[in-house]
């Protein structure tokens, strides 16, 4: 039953990646820009939850609330301060502020919390374990699946069925036309950063319950989630989820054969291979980032 057990772990990892991946794909969809700070926003979510549970003594649901709201505000602040002033400055220039913000967040968190590896213990009601077809599934893992499913469903509804979602999709489709039509494009972009970052905050909390958190985890988390996005087809929300689940399983299978310390590298390899073989991704439709000549 080892195979099934690895599958469970893989899907859990994948569910977490999915929450981060969706934020990349949303921002890419609307700005055609890879938001390098996104993994670090998730990292901040972990530490916000850590503070809420540890220092403030709040329960898990309240901690999730703190992380989600805190990250949404952080994401909007990053867009407003580091990206918006550079919106007309070409695609590469904002990457400079992005890597700056990324390193800044890492080190501010390290200054406050220290560099030590941390974990937070799940609440008692998630401590149990059930056996599904011979594989052990913990309460935390069930919570991760449930939270991811609900979050992605809410996001799909927001984007697909609401006025805000229509404005976001219109802005992503044709920015200049959206401006000319009077769509509040700045607000739509801020909303995308808020939504993506909120999900990253949720991922940060769930990550903390399942593995360990450190101030430097953002980069490898970000690369893996981005690899998932490219694997699924950038710009597509269902693609991001599928890519994340596949990558999560791949990483856990790889870690089983090669040892845990290699699992970070698998994301990079999947990213490189996808770009070589099928840059538009598994479910990708258009604009896989290829230079059109």
């Amino acid at each position: 039953m080892i195979a099934l057990q690895i599958l469970v772990y893989g899907l859990v990892t994948g569910a977490n990646y999915a929450l981060v991946a969706v934020g990349y794909t949303l921002v890419y969809g609307i700005l055609k820009f890879i938001n390098f700070t996104h993994g670090d926003v998730a990292m901040v979510g972990s530490f916000l939850a850590l503070t809420a549970i540890g220092a403030m003594g709040l329960g898990l649901p309240a901690a999730v609330g703190v992380a989600v709201v805190g990250c949404a505000i952080l994401g909007m602040a990053i867009e407003r301060v580091a990206y918006r002033p550079l919106r007309r400055a070409g695609r590469l220039t904002p990457l400079l502020t992005a890597i700056g913000v990324s390193l800044l967040l890492e080190n501010l968190v390290q200054l406050v919390f220290g560099a030590a590896i941390r974990t937070f213990s799940p609440p008692p009601y998630l401590a149990g374990t059930v056996v599904v077809a011979g594989a052990y599934v913990t309460g935390v893992q069930i919570a991760i699946f449930a939270a991811t499913a609900v979050a992605v469903a809410v996001l799909a509804w927001l984007i697909g069925r609401t006025a805000l979602g229509r404005q976001i999709r219109a802005t992503a489709d044709n920015f200049d036309l959206a401006v000319a039509m009077g769509v509040p494009t700045d607000r739509a972009i801020l909303a995308v950063f808020a939504l993506g970052s909120a999900l990253a905050g949720l991922a940060g909390v769930l990550f903390g319950m399942e593995t360990t958190v450190t101030p430097t985890m953002g980069i490898s988390l970000g690369i893996s989630a981005f690899a998932a996005v490219v694997l699924g087809g950038i710009g597509s929300v269902p693609g991001a989820v599928v890519g994340a689940l596949v990558l999560g399983v791949a990483e856990n299978v790889g870690a089983w054969f090669l040892g845990g310390s290699w699992s970070d590298g698998i994301g990079v390899l999947v990213l490189a291979l996808t770009l070589l073989v099928r840059p538009e991704g598994l479910l990708g439709r258009r604009d896989p980032g290829a230079v059109k000549l």
């Binding site: 890879i34 970070d264 980032g289």
Partner: peptide, 15 residues
Amino acid sequence: LRGDYLAIVALGFGQ
């Protein structure tokens, strides 16, 4: 691919 893809693949390469 477009320039920002190189950036993230290169970052991954460093990692």
